[in-house]
Design a protein around this nucleic acid. Structure first.
Length: 430
RNA sequence: CGGAGCGUAGCUCAGCUUGGUAGAGCGCUAGCUUUGGGAGCUAGAAGCCGGAGGUUCGAAUCCUCUCGCUCCGACCA
């Protein structure tokens, strides 16, 4: 993509309504624009990141055996009256009336809808287990939206729902999902820690929240340093993985247990802030019972399926990753989610040698390259590239161009090296 | 929902106390010079001062109402 023809409006100054780092950087890097309180438009680079995160989440969900589908954003109030949550949910739910005075709502979550869809679609306990998911926009009319996409009213979420014949089977899915989540966050280039959590509105009695460590996080977190090493992930046998994840201490301040905490050796105790990027719940029969999802089991007895639900805040992750990975100059994207692998910086626009090399690079990098072909000075290009946080910068200046050389800069480390065009491409693409 | 603020040019903001008809820096347009970390000079364009009422000879400025946004708290993927 050519920067001169892109809708990537970078800002030199910080818009006054952005207080926290990720929000400021997302606005300055031209990723998003606010269109109403807690509601954002995703401009091309922001949208690319969002899509890349969604794709990684999708791949890991699929690998865990979940099936992707898509439910609507608008739901009928009647659906929620069945579960009794229409009145219980309160003002956070955005209620809408259509032209026929029918009551609708913009879905804040999908337990009711999926329960009805599965209930009306499967015929026998032999059709269980089911594990559908979708990636869809949600709306929760937060009293106080803030922190940019970290607490918006409209947000993109992956939500999966499990239906099983009994508790044992439901628990296996719960464990699988925990593993899938840890793999997902690892692929996204961040450290997330599973912490025992309350179940809140959703209901049920077993739940973990996944927190990304960042100084600006909304929750206080306490954890054992063992989580920092990432060793647990090497363990892929599900039972021992789950055993490790749930025995090594980690809790948000709400669930903090000082007795257990005191048993951890001093040097392994870690206290910090976390951003919640996902949560998994075992919810049992709350919805299957309230929505009359009963089936006949192998023993001829009626039973209600055991459910679980599993969410990942995809739009929130964009902000969370930035909170965890930035410096004074801007964003430092993990390779896996960067909007572009590399920026091509033409330091002398209009110079035959630099133009030629840049065009070659641009052609070879394809969609992974952002060619800064603007008629700007070097300093402006460096500053914008650092701000946007591309993992690599290929700097093409007149001096090097004369020798057929370019400079390759790694954003995360600041390392630079002079290379031939081919070697630079090999490093970026390799 | 309680408390506190803010809406003036694309962005950051000054002007408001003490009413006299709109400013700066950056950005934008054109030209020249410059060219490896956000250049210099010259010339320009650009604002119904969030909206509606009111007071006044006269309102960005004072008063009332309203809409929007932000921050602190309670709540929360």
């Amino acid at each position: 993509m050519r920067l001169s023809q892109s809708l990537i409006p970078t800002l030199k100054e910080t818009p006054s309504d952005a207080q926290i780092t990720s929000h400021r950087l997302m606005l300055r890097a031209g990723m998003i624009r606010q269109t109403a309180s807690g509601i954002y438009a995703w401009l091309p680079t922001g949208h690319r990141v969002l899509s890349k995160i969604a794709q990684i989440v999708r791949e890991e969900q699929d690998a865990a055996g979940a099936q992707e589908m898509l439910m609507p954003t608008i739901q009928s109030a009647d659906l929620w009256r069945e579960s009794g949550r229409y009145d219980a949910y309160g003002k956070e739910m955005l209620r809408i009336t259509d032209r026929h005075e029918r009551e609708l709502l913009y879905g804040p979550t999908n337990e009711e809808m999926i329960t009805v869809l599965v209930r009306d679609s499967i015929k026998s306990y032999r059709d269980l287990p089911q594990l559908p998911y979708h990636i869809q926009w949600k709306f929760r009319d937060e009293v106080r939206p803030r922190f940019g996409v970290l607490r918006g009213r409209e947000f993109l979420m992956k939500d999966a729902y499990s239906f099983d014949v009994d508790y044992a089977a439901a628990l296996i899915v719960y464990k699988k999902m925990m593993l899938a989540y840890m793999r997902t966050f690892q692929r996204l280039g961040i450290t997330a820690i599973p912490m025992r959590a309350d179940t809140g509105q959703i209901g049920g009695d077993l739940s973990h929240e996944f927190h990304v460590l960042a100084p600006t996080g909304e929750s206080g977190v306490f954890y054992d340093a063992a989580f920092e090493t990432g060793n647990a992930l090497a363990e892929t046998e599900i039972e021992s993985f789950y055993e490790q994840m749930t025995t090594i201490y980690a809790a948000t301040d709400e669930k903090h247990d000082t007795v257990l905490w005191d048993k951890i050796p001093d040097e392994r105790r870690r206290e910090g802030r976390g951003i919640e990027v996902g949560q998994i719940f075992y919810i049992g029969k709350k919805y299957s019972e309230s929505m009359n999802f009963a089936m006949t089991g192998a023993d001829g007895q009626k039973f209600f399926p055991e459910m679980g639900c599993y969410g990942i805040g995809i739009s929130r992750l964009v902000g969370a990753i930035i909170e965890a990975r930035h410096d004074d100059a801007g964003i430092i994207w993990p390779d896996a989610v960067a909007p572009f692998k590399a920026a091509i910086l033409n330091l002398r626009q209009g110079d035959a040698a630099t133009d030629g090399i840049c065009e070659t690079l641009h052609a070879r990098l394809g969609a992974d390259g952002l060619y800064d072909d603007r008629d700007e000075r070097a300093g402006a290009k460096f500053a914008d590239a650092d701000l946007m946080g591309h993992p690599w910068q290929i700097i093409v200046g007149p001096r090097g161009a004369a020798k057929g050389q370019v400079e390759l800069k790694r954003r995360a480390t600041g390392e630079r090296s002079e290379l031939s065009v081919q070697d630079a491409l090999a490093q970026v693409l390799g």
